[in-house]
Simulated assay, not measured.
Amino acid sequence: MEPYYAGWLSLLPPIIAITLALLTKEVISSLLIGILSGTFIYSVGTSASSLFAGTIETAFNVMAAKVDFNILIFCTLLGALVYVIAMAGGTRAYGKWATRKIKSRKAALLSTGGLGAFIFIDDYFNCLTVGTVMKPVTDSYKISRAKLAYIIDATAAPICIIAPISSWAAAVGSNLKTTGAFTSDFSAFVATIPYNFYALLSLVMVAVICLTNADFGPMRRSELRALKGDLGAVDVPQASQFEAAEKGKVWDMLVPIGSLIVFAVVGLLYDGGYWGSDP
């Protein structure tokens, strides 16, 4: 596919997808309609011979071209790593240690947000790790699962989309470079950071809520129920439950996650040609 400048029409697909998702509460069909609206605009702009066939064909071509099995394997291995850490007892040990060290509700909220900002390699790994690790801590201070989920979600993707070294940086940078407006993937990604208002404002909002405890709307109602003992926990199916090791140590979690971050950064720098390449 050749790049096509659609001007303000390029805003319509995400607006359509978000609006439909909010109205229907159904994500997959909303995203699909948003994609089709974008490929329709592309077909009209490129004067396709058949708008209907061009719209469908472009959608399939785009989706087929973006299938990356490396990312699928990467995300699968991240999930496996979280499971292994939990089975080894590292998650439970860290939760107990953090519960002893954290002395207030505000500190528990800030620790959750801070850990979410620290794990910037991948948003899926961020959600899996922070949720598993901080759940015992937030439960001990009667913080609702809804608020825990909000803090995790509002730090995972936003921190990854503005971190120069992340799975998102590689994807966004490579896509923007195809426009020809940037000299490299990295420069393309860095140029978007000041204009990524959603990510920046989401992180600011998390900090404000953690520091001020200014809940509102459904979040406030969830917090009031949590203070009475109803955390809003979801029952886990019996088939997915497991028994973690009792003798796990904090290092059983810190060493694997620390190694992942260090070697991921080193690998990204090496693959990007920042070191190890021939002069």
Rank of each mutant, 00 (worst) to 15 (best):
residue 84 V to T: 06
residue 94 Y to R: 02
residue 92 R to M: 00
residue 85 I to Y: 08
residue 64 A to M: 09
residue 62 V to T: 06
residue 76 T to C: 06
residue 91 T to R: 00
residue 80 A to W: 07
residue 92 R to N: 00
residue 80 A to H: 05
residue 91 T to L: 05
residue 73 I to S: 10
residue 64 A to E: 12
residue 85 I to T: 14
residue 89 G to K: 06
residue 87 M to N: 09
residue 89 G to C: 06
residue 91 T to S: 10
residue 79 G to I: 02
residue 88 A to E: 06
residue 92 R to F: 00
residue 86 A to I: 06
residue 91 T to H: 03
residue 83 Y to C: 07
residue 90 G to C: 09
residue 77 L to W: 09
residue 67 V to Q: 06
residue 62 V to E: 05
residue 86 A to C: 12
residue 64 A to G: 05
residue 84 V to S: 04
residue 78 L to A: 00
residue 90 G to S: 08
residue 90 G to N: 08
residue 87 M to Q: 10
residue 66 K to G: 04
residue 76 T to E: 00
residue 80 A to S: 06
residue 66 K to C: 05
residue 73 I to A: 11
residue 72 L to S: 13
residue 71 I to N: 15
residue 62 V to Q: 07
residue 98 A to G: 15
residue 73 I to G: 09
residue 82 V to N: 02
residue 71 I to P: 10
residue 65 A to E: 15
residue 77 L to I: 12
residue 92 R to T: 03
residue 74 F to P: 07
residue 83 Y to W: 13
residue 64 A to R: 14
residue 93 A to K: 03
residue 86 A to T: 15
residue 94 Y to I: 06
residue 72 L to I: 14
residue 97 W to P: 01
residue 82 V to R: 01
residue 86 A to Q: 15
residue 64 A to K: 15
residue 74 F to D: 13
residue 81 L to V: 01
residue 76 T to G: 14
residue 97 W to D: 04
residue 63 M to V: 04
residue 94 Y to W: 07
residue 69 F to P: 03
residue 95 G to F: 02
residue 68 D to L: 06
residue 87 M to W: 08
residue 84 V to Q: 04
residue 83 Y to V: 10
residue 91 T to C: 05
residue 75 C to Q: 10
residue 70 N to H: 14
residue 69 F to W: 15
residue 70 N to M: 10
residue 85 I to R: 08
residue 73 I to H: 04
residue 92 R to K: 06
residue 65 A to C: 13
residue 79 G to L: 04
